[in-house]
Design a protein around this nucleic acid. Structure first.
Lengths: 211, 211
DNA sequence: TCACTTCCTGACCGTATGGTCAGGATCAGA
DNA sequence: TCTGATCCTGACCATACGGTCAGGAAGTGA
């Protein structure tokens, strides 16, 4: 099972950094920042602990990178919202994208949630700059849809909070959902049903669809 | 400021336990289980560390009590749902109650979220018994309302997840919301607006109200 | 007053953690 | 082949943590 062929320098760095980041994401998600240990992350990554410190000076550096990763993934996923003619397509596709991420990156979502819950000690600047600008932009977009009569006059901010809350819930509280599902993870069909449920309730809730 | 009058034995125990539990709830919420230290909890409570261990044998015992507390608060808050004639009153009052708790007990909510995110290591039995039974009961209640034509045929479980997600979001992600609110906590009026927004979108989303 | 129980705490202990470092291995380019 | 940069790691260190304990303080009931 050893694919230990010689590698270029740049590849080695790239490969080990991702390997460590993936292990770190998992361990931080399962144990929190305080509960995670560099030793455990090293074990999961299959590397000596000292090697982690070669690539990431401190535990906090490593953690910061993990948090930034999920944040960027979320930002990229929101692109579909802008290129939509109205709330049905825009918010519908945003929900789809966020639900897909909740399934593919549950650990990243948990790390972000944990970070924010603890007062965002390491990404407060992101909240105040990038997230704030992003939020204001989307709130304006939603308001435009409202003004154009394409949806009910709901508060754009509280709508965004609801979108974040519901979609991320399936990642952050995935264990609880799994337990209530009889101890087994949601199947493909169940995930699709979840997406449809969320989309249906929200799109009806904002008056974008009637039925 | 010393109210150090002599106290009865039972009072002493009662008072110190609540004092420690309140401090623990705050510290666990801010730092997570792994990041919290008995020393810090002791400092917040204004007691020597050794005194904590007199009332709570281990850090985990203390933590377990904190998690159980918020769980009971939530369970009690759901009573209004049963005594309601339909979804407008039942789910409406449940949202009100959960939003009120998010404001009055944000730390407890965060501790619960953290616990579940980490795989519920200490309250897994609660999820499998109490929460599971509770959920099945409410799902049946919602299904009855659907069958009676009082609301749209949504999946009761996903509706419950949405209720939990949206209401608890205002506690768990309170820091993010506060940052997006210009760095200041929501005012009374803003909290009322949040409750109305959430109630409006969800009740419309499940077809319990039309407008 | 006295015996008894509960309450309290400074000092201490074993352990595990984040981080360091010297020195070796490996690769790149000349 | 030689030189220098990058990569790797076992062994080590200072610190901080959860938890213990002996012994004193303070209520309690007779």
């Amino acid at each position: 099972m050893s694919d230990a062929r010689p590698q270029k320098r740049t590849e080695i760095r790239q490969q080990n950094e991702t390997l460590i980041l993936q292990a770190a994401e998992k361990v931080f998600a399962e144990a929190g920042f305080g509960g995670a240990t560099m030793q455990l992350i090293a074990d999961v990554a299959g590397l000596p602990k000292a090697n982690l410190h070669y690539y990431f000076a401190t535990k906090e550096d490593l953690y910061r990178r993990v948090v930034q990763n999920i944040f960027e993934i979320w930002l990229n996923a929101a692109g579909s919202m802008d290129r939509a003619p109205g709330p049905v397509e825009g918010i519908g596709s945003y929900i789809d994208a966020k639900m897909d991420i909740s399934r593919s990156h549950p650990c990243g979502s948990k790390v972000w949630a944990s970070e924010v819950m603890h007062g965002a000690p390491v990404i407060q600047d992101y909240l105040e700059t990038t997230l704030r600008n992003w939020t204001m932009g989307r709130a304006a977009l939603i308001q435009r849809w409202i003004d154009e009569g394409k949806m009910a006059p709901v508060d754009p901010h509280h709508l965004l909070y609801m979108l974040w809350a519901t979609t991320q819930h399936y990642a952050d509280f995935g264990h609880q959902i799994e337990t209530l599902n009889g101890g087994t993870p949601l199947t493909d069909a169940q995930w699709q049903a979840a997406k449809d449920s969320v989309k249906g309730m929200i799109l009806r809730g904002i008056g974008a669809v009637t039925s």
